[in-house]
Simulated assay, not measured.
Amino acid sequence: MAFDLLFVLGCAAMFTGAVRLTRAPALAAGALDATENALLATYAARSSTGAPVDGVPVTALYAIAALKTAAAMTAAGFVALALPTTTRAHRAMAAAAAAFVLVNAAGTALPALGPVEPLPIALLTVLPLVAFRARLRATPSAPPIGPVAPSR
């Protein structure tokens, strides 16, 4: 569940920070994932007390998971289409976003691909960190604010 919560943060922060076009689908994916997590926590609490979990809420959970995946795939597709391809880092991010869409779509048809599905989103989470870190290192630092000790 903790890793799933990272997906919520990843969708909401990484996609919306990368490209403006992805705000609505990314926020939808984050909201749907948060809803899915709340339902899972509720079901876990109910089952720990021995109460049965009804069939209709379980069906709702699958529907929410499918909508979340569709929203995340839409956001990743927008990232793949909207990122500039001027640098290797941007091309790698666009390729990872496109791979996320393709692998998740293929995973729907072939459930055996399930273990591979987290790899593109992991890349898509790490690549912006690497690119932004390199950009921050290349930016000259600002002079210190406040009094500076005289040099000898």
Rank of each mutant, 00 (worst) to 15 (best):
L81N: 08
A18V: 04
P111Q: 02
D4C: 09
T35L: 15
A96K: 00
A131I: 05
A76V: 03
P143G: 08
T42G: 14
R133F: 12
L67W: 14
L129N: 12
L27I: 09
T125Q: 05
P111D: 01
A70D: 03
P118W: 01
L32M: 07
G77A: 12
P143R: 05
T59L: 11
G50P: 10
V53P: 13
R91A: 06
L9E: 09
F78R: 11
A109L: 12
C11P: 01
A24K: 13
A82E: 07
A112Y: 06
A13E: 11
A63L: 13
T35P: 03
G50N: 14
A98R: 05
A75P: 00
A105T: 04
Y43N: 14
G10L: 00
V126S: 03
I145Y: 15
R133K: 08
P115A: 02
L102P: 04
A80I: 04
I145D: 10
L136N: 12
V116R: 06
P143N: 08
A134W: 07
T87K: 07
G30H: 04
P52E: 10
P144K: 05
P111N: 06
L27E: 05
L127R: 03
S141V: 14
A12I: 01
A24D: 09
A65T: 09
T42S: 15
P52Q: 10
A134V: 13
T125D: 01
A12P: 04
L27Q: 06
L40G: 08
L39P: 05
A51W: 10
P25K: 00
H90R: 11
G114S: 07
V8H: 01
G107S: 02
L40M: 12
N37V: 12
G17W: 00
A29R: 02
L113S: 04
A12K: 01
V8G: 02
A24Y: 12
A28C: 10
L119Q: 06
L124T: 02
R91K: 12
E36L: 15
L5Q: 11
T139L: 10
R91C: 11
F7D: 07
V8I: 07
L61W: 11
C11M: 15
